[in-house]
Every structure is written in C-alpha cells, then in structure tokens.
Simulated scan of single mutants.
Amino acid sequence: MKKKIWIAIAVILVIVIVVGVNIYRTYADSTATVEAEKAIKEEINSTVMTPGTLAMADESTLYQDPAKGEVKEVLVKEGDSVKKGDSVLTYENQDLEMEKEQNDINIESLYLRINSLDKQEKRLNEKKSDLADDVGEEAAETMETELDQVKMDKRMANLDLRQALLQQDRLKQKISDLEVTSDISGVVLEANDASAPQSTQMEKPLLRIGSMENLIVEGTLSEYDTLNIESGQKVTVTTDVLPDEKWEAEVMDVGYLPEALGAESNASAVQYPVTVKLKKPEELKLKPGFQMILEIETESHEALTLPFEAVQQDGEESFVFIVEKGKAVKREIETGSSTAKRIEVTKGISTEEQVIINPPDNLKDNMEVTVK
C-alpha cells in the first residue's frame, strides 16, 4: 500500500514539474528583459573614404640631358638643403665651346670688315668730291657704281653681324644652361652617380629634390563621388601605420579628366584623381610613399541618431522596437547618413521614446518587456 502511495506522489511531482516548465516557457516566450535608450540629436557628417599616397607638392626630378653634353659635376649630395636658384649640377660641352669661339672670331672679323668698308666709303666720297671740283660733276658720277657697291657690301656685312650677334646670345644662353639650378627650395632626396652608363642615367634621375614643408595626399574618386566633392572640403587623414593618429587636411583639387585606363582595366571603373593638402605637414612624421586613408566630409547637419544595434532589417524595410506601456512595439523607420557607431533616423521616432537596443531574437511585436 505504501509503495503505491509513493508511486502516486512521484507521478504527481513529475506532472507538476512538467506543467511548471511549460508555464515558465510560455511566460518566457511572452516576456523579455531588454536594454533601451532614447534617440539623441547630434552633428553628423556625410563622408567619402578613399585610399591615397603621401607625396610632396613641391618636387623636382632632374635627368641627364644628352643635348647639353656630359655631366661635369653634381654639386650636392643626398640630405643637402638647397634653395631655389642654387646651382646643383654642371655640364661640359666641348662642341659648344668651339662653336662659341668660332662665333667670337666671326663677330670680330665682321667688325673689322665693316670698319674697312667705312674707310673705303669715306675715301670714295672724298675722291668723288675732288673729281667734281677738278673735272666736273659728270666725271664724278663715274664713281657712283663703285660707291654703291661698297655701300651694298657694308649693308650685307651689317646683316651678317646682326645674325652673328643673335647666334652669340643663343650660345650664351646654352652655356648658361650648362649650370643647372634648383627649381624649388627643399632637400636632396636622391643623388645618383653621373659616371654611370648613359642608358642607366636615362632610367634613374641624377637628382631628386623635394620639400617636406608642403605635403599632399594623392588619391582617386569614383564617378559618383566626384559629384559630391569639391575644393576646400574638410578631410581627416589617417594611416594604418599609426592607427591612433589623425591629421586635418582639405581638398585641394579634383581632377576634371579621369586617370588613364590600362589595357587590362575595367572600362566601367573610371577613377578621377583627387589631391588633399595637409594643414600642418610638420606634425606628420611619415615619409612620402606611405599609404593613407582619406575621409572627406561632404556634408554636415544635425540629426536624430540611434546606435546601429537598435535598427533591424526585414528585406528593404528598416524597423526598431519602441517600449510602450511595458510592451515592445515594432515601428518602421527611415534612415539616412551614418557614422562609425550610429545611424541617422529621418522618420519614425521622437527623442521622447525608448528604443530597444540589441533586441533578443525571440522579441516579437506587442511582447511584454522589462527594461533593465
């Protein structure tokens, strides 16, 4: 008899536990504990991000110019500071020197010839005058042909002299060009051996001079992005090399023409060059060629925002859960711009409503909720 009683009690306990578990599950499925917060108004920026390369705005590259002759001397070395107009390189050209000497001789010869013709003309005029006094005007006229010829020779000699003087000016300029000066003020970044074979010199520059006082970042933009970006817009520059650092800059120029596409390039992927100027280049302790990230601000406005974790997607529909009278109410919303952690809500909620953050997977419309 006692055994039957214990069996009955065990059966009743099992039934109670099962019923209790079912009741708990039913209650758990109809309620949830959630975290909620209100939407806030903040300044939000629309940005375009693109990679870029750090470069110098002022850079001068000098290659050997065979037309000038052979390199005589490179006057600077890597690391030297130079100013605009400083001599950095000289050439020597023996053919040019010989041409100049011949020109000098030609000019001197023409001056002597013109001087001789002047004296000859003077003598003929005197002889003509004497004949006119002694014999008469008719006899003096016989001298005209000889006098005209001297005048013509003198005129031709003067034309030859003018041409020689012009050639002298050109030669002086060519000789002056044998001394090459720097186009910019900066630092010598590269200085190569001028005695290397000429084929190598044509490939490698003799000198490369750059200024670290005016740094830029060169990047590219898509067709769509070029419509929203213009000179003067604010830019934040970062790099993976120094992830905790950022620098202020502004858009300097957006290319009007796209970059040239290679033979293997996708013709639909047209890219336009963009140049960004750093506001305080002295604070950037990096070298030209470093890879940078450009975040270009295209628009700034005040917006109502929520954390990304609050916004749910159902196809193309965006929605959130609002806490109303202890229940989670599904609310369709419209979104706009976004930042790294928050998204703009343009329609659907107000600043007074509590929005559920990170809603649990089992959360349903009109489910009872408890806010932490």
Rank of each mutant, 00 (worst) to 15 (best):
A267G: 00
G219A: 05
E213L: 04
V235M: 05
D183G: 14
W247Y: 14
I184W: 00
D225E: 15
I175F: 02
V270R: 11
Y272H: 11
K287C: 00
V237M: 01
L261C: 06
I216R: 04
Q201P: 01
Y224K: 14
N228I: 00
M292S: 07
E250L: 08
S211E: 06
I209D: 01
E248D: 14
G289V: 06
T181K: 07
N266S: 14
Y272R: 12
V274H: 01
V254Q: 07
V237Q: 00
G219Y: 01
D183I: 10
E250D: 15
Q271R: 15
E283Y: 01
D253A: 05
T220Y: 09
L207V: 00
G210E: 13
V276S: 10
E213H: 09
S195L: 15
P197S: 06
L278I: 11
M292P: 08
E297Q: 13
L227Q: 15
K285G: 03
L189W: 02
E282P: 01
V237T: 03
L242N: 01
Q233F: 05
A267D: 04
A249N: 03
A269D: 14
E248W: 01
Q198R: 08
Q198D: 12
G186S: 07
Y224E: 14
T238R: 07
P288Q: 11
E259V: 13
I175G: 00
K246V: 07
E297M: 09
E259H: 09
N214S: 13
T181N: 04
I175Q: 11
Q233E: 11
L221K: 04
I293Q: 15
E190T: 15
D183C: 02
Y224G: 08
